[in-house]
């Protein structure tokens, strides 16, 4: 009988431990997923690392169409659009363009743009040198701003890719940020 109780106890401890481990594993999936997407460039997640070295361009005539898309996340009132909706880009050429954001409301707001590339396969070859999505974008009431974007297409870009779509979704992140921004700058009115 005593023997049985102790073997029950051993089992319970092991099984409970497995449960705790699996609960932790659920949370571990979060960083694992991010790392996996970053390393493989899957899921249209763009690497923010600029061109690696002097790019050697094997085919100077090769051109790729880059379409720029702007999306407002649900409830985001800003005006948000690319200044050019489509570009012809030479491989290896440093290309500069911009997005225009307008805050039509009567209050100070902060936004964050989240990029995504389609096809996902192209994500790791689109190298951004400078992007407004690297930073939060504060705009005062009624303010308009041109936000720069500077990128290069890598020579390794698979040849079957003729068109790349670069999409930005603009999220309103004001609530968390308003107070901090207000104390940091005097031109801000809440």
């Amino acid at each position: 009988m005593a023997e049985q109780t102790s073997s029950h106890r051993r089992l319970i401890i092991r099984l409970t431990l497995s449960c705790v481990l699996m609960f932790g594993f659920g949370f571990a999936l979060v960083p694992l997923y991010d790392v996996f997407c970053q390393v493989t460039g899957l899921n249209g997640k763009v690497l923010n690392n600029g061109p690696l070295q002097e790019t050697v361009v094997s085919d100077v005539n090769r051109r790729v169409k880059v379409q720029l898309i702007a999306v407002n996340n649900g409830g985001m009132p800003w005006g948000f659009r690319p200044s050019e909706s489509s570009l012809e880009v030479h491989i290896g050429e440093m290309k500069q363009t911009a997005y225009v954001a307008t805050n039509p409301t009567d209050r100070f707001m902060v936004a964050q743009a989240v990029p995504s590339v389609a096809p996902a396969e192209a994500a790791q070859y689109l190298r951004k040198v400078n992007c407004f999505c690297f930073d939060r974008q504060p705009l005062n009431a009624k303010e308009q701003r041109e936000m720069p974007l500077l990128f290069v297409l890598d020579d390794e870009l698979p040849v079957h890719i003729k068109t790349i779509t670069l999409s930005y979704t603009l999220f309103d992140i004001t609530p968390e940020d308003a107070l901090a921004a207000a104390s940091g700058s005097e031109e801000v009115q809440l």
Binding site: M22, F23, G24, G26, F27
Partner: peptide
């Protein structure tokens, strides 16, 4: 034993997104 804790994990993440920012 292997997957119910993962379900508990995912609803906990939801709870944190909804209430704890």
């Amino acid at each position: 034993i292997a997957v119910m804790p993962v379900l508990a994990g995912v609803v906990t993440m939801m709870l944190m997104d909804i209430h704890f920012g």
